[in-house]
């Protein structure tokens, strides 16, 4: 459903991604791990269309409803309307705009783009409440300004709420598990697991294995210095947690 072909990208002239290849099929869960600065967050931002990154090579093909589309040709909002989602590592605060107001505007704009009937405010309230219950979020979240004064855990939970409301096809979740206590991790982990469907795909960017107690991956990739240096199964994540990245990095350097 998403094919990343030989993507290279730089920011301020510095090359961060150096030829990434990744094929994601519907129903799959991928995990991307790797030491800090290896380019994991950049990869998700490039897919979502952050304006700071310049794509120097490669393409991203999005295969949806039997049509192949070149994702890099689309503006960020169009990518989102087509079904791409990115859970931010550091969600941005938007003062003056309530969570509900924002979610309804985004939801309806996506509906409009996809030719689906928009939801009126009352129906939307019910719909939102259902999604919030499922993430154990209290009603106070509805009227609070978007991410303003939210704790780290609340912000991450709010990202998953947005994913639940917007119902994307391909979701990159960038360190959604970091900064969470054990209980919050369980809520977020179970939330993600319940949002996993046969017709969507989830890519988890993480440093830790603990999120995988809730969401079972099909593939685990290790990124280093802008490249994917190893791909394996869930066991690879355990291996990294025990032994660190050093041996994997050495192995890949020797093979070059």
């Amino acid at each position: 459903m998403l094919t990343i072909k030989n993507i290279s990208a730089s920011v301020d002239g510095k090359e961060i991604l150096k030829g990434i290849n990744l094929t994601i099929k519907t129903g799959e869960v991928h995990v991307i791990m790797g030491p800090n600065g290896s380019g994991k967050s950049t990869l998700s931002k490039v897919v979502a269309g952050h304006p700071d990154y310049e794509i120097t090579d490669g393409e991203v093909i999005y295969d949806i409803n039997f049509k192949k589309k070149n994702l890099l040709d689309m503006e960020p909002d169009i990518r989102a309307k087509e079904g791409i989602f990115m859970g931010f590592q550091y969600p941005v605060e938007i003062p003056g705009v309530s969570n509900e107001e924002f979610l309804r505007a985004a939801f309806n704009e996506i509906c409009k783009y996809q030719g689906v009937e928009e939801m009126d405010p009352l129906d939307f309230q019910d719909f939102l409440k259902e999604k919030m219950d499922f993430l154990g979020m209290g009603e106070k979240f509805v009227n609070r300004e978007l991410n303003v004064g939210f704790s780290g855990g609340e912000k991450k939970r709010n990202e998953i709420l947005q994913m639940a409301v917007l119902s994307p096809k391909v979701s990159f979740l960038d360190e959604t598990d970091s900064g969470l206590d054990v209980d919050a991790l369980r809520v977020v982990g179970e939330g993600i697991n319940r949002l996993k469907r046969r017709d969507n795909a989830i890519i988890l960017i993480t440093h830790y294995h603990r999120l995988l107690d809730y969401v079972k991956p099909d593939f685990v990739h290790v990124m280093y210095d802008g490249k994917i240096i190893k791909t394996g199964e869930e066991s690879l994540a355990y291996e990294i947690e025990q032994n660190g990245y050093d041996s994997i990095i050495k192995e890949s350097q020797n093979s070059n």
Binding site: A48, P51, E75, D77, F88, V97
Partner: peptide
């Protein structure tokens, strides 16, 4: 970018931000 990545066009984004302010 945050609001764009949620499907809001830049026009809607500005409208939301200005309205909020």
């Amino acid at each position: 970018f945050y609001l764009n990545s949620r499907g809001l066009s830049t026009e809607s984004t500005i409208s939301l931000l200005i309205n909020g302010f």
